[in-house]
Amino acid sequence: MTDKTRIAVIGLGSMGYGMAKCCLKAGLTTYGYDIMPAQMEKFQSEGGAVGALDDVASSLDCALIVVLNAPQTEAVLFGDNGIVAKLSKGAVVVACATVPPAFARDMEARCAEHGILYLDAPISGGSLKAASGNLSVMASGTAAAFERARPTLEAISEQVFELGDTAGAGSAMKAVNQLLAGVNLATMTEALTFGMTQGVTPEKFFEVIPKCAGTSWMLENRTPHIVDGDYTPRSQIDIWPKDLGIVLDIAKSAKFSAPITATVMQQYLAASGMGYGAEDDAALAKVYARNAGLTLPGDE
């Protein structure tokens, strides 16, 4: 395939919009769809192809699904107005949500019944990397699915990890990543607010710790949100009970004890219960701050 590749990005949120723009930049004919009409109109005004999904589905090479979770993925694919039945045989679905491996395998099988390829392709890197085309993709699927999805993968990613020839392996690796990311984020907010009890300001924390052994990607990416007092959601608190719930469900099925993950889950649930669920996930620091009587930047 060449730059005549035609794709639809379904889900123009903080990740999907940037990915769709990267597909445009790569020269792919790119349609963008979202439950928010304003997002679709904005994308079309910036060069996105115009056309109703029902009208263009049969001409697509790839449907890139960038929604929140398994129920939304299933609804897009097989709901009342599901896209799979409208795609031409041999087209590929590239599914990017964090989902249980068993769900990914089920979607692959159901797509195959319609002659549609399926790539289990969860992503990592955040909204900035989505916008720059530098995501990491943890993918698994048939050789044919990889081949059909290649122009799309090249447009959105810095690295594609090919993890197996059936769906499920990509989602399993994403679960491993989310365990680490969720725990790292919680530990960062705990350390930052602990430091405040000892006179270490968030600004000084961010000056020193990224140069020390205690740093992590999550620390370096999220601490500036706390320092700036800016909790505009790049990744919401409420994503983590879902993602860590998947991790804990997998662990339970494997009879694997994951006590640190289970403890961290309670902090995210507490943050959501306190009303921070729709805020940036760095707002987890507010749980610690409230419990310790601390004042975070922006809350003076």
Rank of each mutant, 00 (worst) to 15 (best):
E207I: 00
P151G: 02
H114G: 04
A112C: 02
E162H: 09
E158C: 02
G141K: 11
M188P: 10
A186C: 09
A112M: 03
R148G: 00
E158K: 01
T142M: 01
R150V: 07
V160A: 05
K129M: 12
F161P: 07
L192Y: 05
A175N: 15
S132Q: 13
S171C: 06
D120R: 06
T197V: 15
E190I: 00
D106K: 12
G195S: 12
H114A: 10
S124E: 11
A155T: 02
G182M: 12
F206V: 14
M107S: 02
P122M: 07
P202N: 14
K129A: 10
S124K: 15
E158N: 09
G164F: 09
R150H: 03
C111P: 00
N177P: 12
V183E: 13
R148T: 00
S127W: 05
R110N: 07
E207H: 02
D106I: 04
S171M: 05
A175S: 15
C111W: 00
V160P: 01
T197R: 15
S136K: 10
T142R: 06
G125W: 02
A169F: 13
E147M: 08
L153V: 10
V176N: 14
Q198A: 11
N134Y: 03
L117T: 04
F206I: 14
R150A: 08
G126N: 11
M188K: 11
V200I: 12
R110Y: 04
Y118S: 03
A181M: 07
M188V: 15
N134D: 10
F146P: 01
I156K: 00
R105P: 04
Q159C: 01
A144I: 10
E158Y: 02
A167I: 02
G133S: 10
P151C: 01
A167K: 00
V183S: 13
L135A: 01
F205I: 11
F146K: 03
A149N: 07
A186P: 04
Q198G: 10
A181Y: 02
M138V: 06
S140T: 06
T197G: 14
M188I: 14
A131M: 13
Q198I: 05
I116E: 08
A155V: 01
S157A: 09
F194Q: 13
L192Q: 02
A181R: 03
T166A: 09
A181L: 08
L117S: 04
K204C: 05
G170V: 03
T201E: 12
S140A: 13
P122C: 06
V160G: 03
A139V: 01
M107E: 00
A181T: 08
Q198Y: 12
A186I: 03
K204V: 09
V160N: 02
A121R: 13
M138I: 05
E147W: 03
L179N: 08
N177H: 14
R105V: 13
E203W: 13
L128C: 09
P151A: 03
F205Y: 07
A121Q: 10
